[in-house]
């Protein structure tokens, strides 16, 4: 009953909110008025944009020592999260049956588990540092904590439903997933889509100025 509601109407509602919300946010960013650059460009913006999307994936010189924690824990969390999100057998099955109509070869169970462990350790460490580090705590808003906790809860309920034999556990996981999807477009979780946009914008501006950054 509950599972049917969560996987039926609630799932469709959340999916619509998610897709429409994300598109709306992206279009909104696209339509932001930007100041016309009157200077004669010293180079093309495209290479700069592409380069920056890549180079910003690593710590800039001078910050490497202080940022080691974020770099390691950040990649642990994000790589782990994407492996388990896209290549976990139950997720592939769900994507095939409910979203795309086709699937792909899932990761072996051990890889799924190792990725989950990395993701769990990463998100816990990152969130604890957000709480414990005085600067991090000061610059964190409700949104940061809510997004971290919500993501953790989604991952945790998924972990608890790993036996794949109890509808109640699956329903709880789906419920938290729906909550996350509804919350997603209106929160910092949007960085999953906006990070290349933001990097490309900076990179293009730098490229036109002829600065390698």
């Amino acid at each position: 009953m509950f599972l049917e509601f969560v996987e039926g109407p609630l799932w469709y509602f959340s999916a619509v909110v998610f897709v429409v919300g994300v598109l709306w946010r992206l279009v909104d960013i696209w339509r932001q008025p930007s100041r016309t650059d009157l200077a004669v460009p010293r180079g093309s913006g495209v290479p700069g944009a592409l380069r920056t999307i890549v180079t910003r994936s690593w710590t800039a010189k001078g910050f490497s020592r202080g940022a080691t924690f974020h770099l390691v824990a950040g990649y642990m969390f994000h790589i782990g999260l994407f492996v388990l999100l896209i290549f976990a057998a139950p997720h592939v099955k769900f994507i095939e049956e409910r979203i795309l109509g086709f699937g792909w070869t899932p990761a072996p169970h051990w890889l799924f588990m190792v990725a989950s462990d990395l993701a769990f350790a990463g998100i816990l460490l990152l969130w604890l540092r957000r709480l414990m580090h005085p600067v991090m705590r000061k610059i964190s808003t409700f949104d940061d904590h809510a997004a971290a906790i919500l993501t953790f809860v989604v991952m945790l309920t998924g972990c608890l439903a790993l036996l794949k034999s109890h509808d109640s556990l699956r329903a709880i996981h789906m419920l938290t997933v729906c909550l996350l999807m509804v919350y997603f477009p209106f929160s910092r979780l949007m960085h999953a889509f906006t990070f290349p946009v933001s990097r490309a914008y900076t990179g293009a501006a730098m490229g036109r100025k002829g600065v390698s950054a």
Partner: peptide, 11 residues
């Protein structure tokens, strides 16, 4: 118990 077992084994 299933939730606890899977959680215990993963964490």
């Amino acid at each position: 118990a299933a939730a606890c077992k899977e959680g215990h084994n993963l964490f």
